[in-house]
Simulated assay, not measured.
Amino acid sequence: MKEKIFLVDLDGTIINSSRGILNSFDYAFEKMGVLTPSKEILKSFIGPPLHDSFGLYFEGKDIQKAVEVFREYYSEKGMFEIEVYEGVEETIKTLSESCKCKLFVATSKDDKHAKEIIKNIGLDKYFEKVVGSSADGTFSEKVDIIRYILDNEIENTDEYEIFMVGDTKFDIIGANKNGINSIGVLYGFGSEEDLREAGATYIVEKLTDILEIK
């Protein structure tokens, strides 16, 4: 039986970051002088790269400016307005220590904040590496982040059974395009319909359920 490697999404999978992210979007739109979209629209921005979401409302240099303003609030307050989902630490610890699986964080959140969050919540000791997006948005798509980990952090990928674990269709699509398994979780920001339509290999209600996948 092949050893397992898990690439784990951050927002909506490890942490419930909705309060901090929504507050950061509110701050950014207000500072940019643009009417803030509805909460339902803003919730759809949790998961995709920031540059893609702001690109729906801004053009050119204003997109980067909006991202920078968003990160002003996020760096000071938003990144601390989070909760670790129930069962996450238990699952991550079991996978790392008991199952001897290699673990990576694969997130579209910017690399600096992703690393700080994982350290602040005390899970950094379980992960081989945290890989997030670049500050300028040139490296932010989940498919590219997964590919980077496969190409640069894992030797002889054929020797492992590799899973991408996430809550949105972007995690599933990224996994499928890179030829690895995917596990969609139902407690995050995505929908079961989107996860199924994207072609998730497995769908689980809670993170601890992945311990039962053979």
Rank of each mutant, 00 (worst) to 15 (best):
F70E: 04
I21F: 09
V8I: 15
A106I: 04
Y74D: 02
L123Q: 02
D62V: 05
S75A: 14
Y160C: 09
G188M: 10
I145N: 00
R196N: 15
S53N: 11
Y148V: 01
S24R: 07
K100Y: 13
I149P: 00
G12E: 07
I180E: 02
S191L: 12
K214E: 15
S140D: 11
C101R: 03
F127G: 01
F80T: 12
T208K: 15
V131C: 00
L207R: 01
L50C: 02
L195S: 05
Y73T: 12
G55V: 11
L103C: 08
S53L: 04
D151T: 10
H51Y: 15
F70D: 03
V185S: 08
D209S: 10
R147Q: 01
R19G: 04
E59F: 12
G78E: 06
A114Q: 02
E197S: 15
I82K: 04
T168H: 01
K129W: 00
I117Y: 01
K142C: 01
G179V: 04
E83C: 11
S38D: 15
I180L: 05
D158I: 11
A28W: 03
G20I: 06
I203H: 08
V8N: 03
S191P: 13
G174F: 00
P49T: 02
D151M: 13
G12N: 10
G55I: 06
T208C: 14
K4I: 11
S53M: 05
V105M: 04
N152T: 05
E153G: 07
G47C: 09
T36A: 11
N181G: 04
N120F: 11
K100F: 10
G33N: 09
I5P: 02
E76H: 13
K4W: 11
T168V: 05
I63Q: 02
G199N: 10
S108V: 00
G60K: 07
A175C: 06
L211E: 07
I5L: 07
T138E: 04
K31H: 12
V130G: 00
I173H: 00
D194G: 07
K177V: 03
N16H: 15
M79G: 02
I15R: 02
H113E: 10
K100P: 08
R147H: 01
P37W: 07
V67Q: 04
E159F: 14
E68Q: 15
S140G: 15
Y160T: 07
R196E: 14
K65H: 13
K115H: 04
E197Q: 15
V67E: 04
K112D: 10
K100E: 13
I121F: 09
K39Y: 13
E59H: 15
K93N: 13
V185M: 07
F127S: 01
L95I: 10
R196T: 13
Y85S: 09
E81L: 09
D171T: 06
A28L: 11
K206M: 12
N178K: 03
K61H: 10
Y57P: 04
I203A: 10
L103W: 07
F170K: 00
I118M: 10
T91Q: 11
E159H: 13
G179A: 09
K39E: 15
R147Y: 00
Y27N: 06
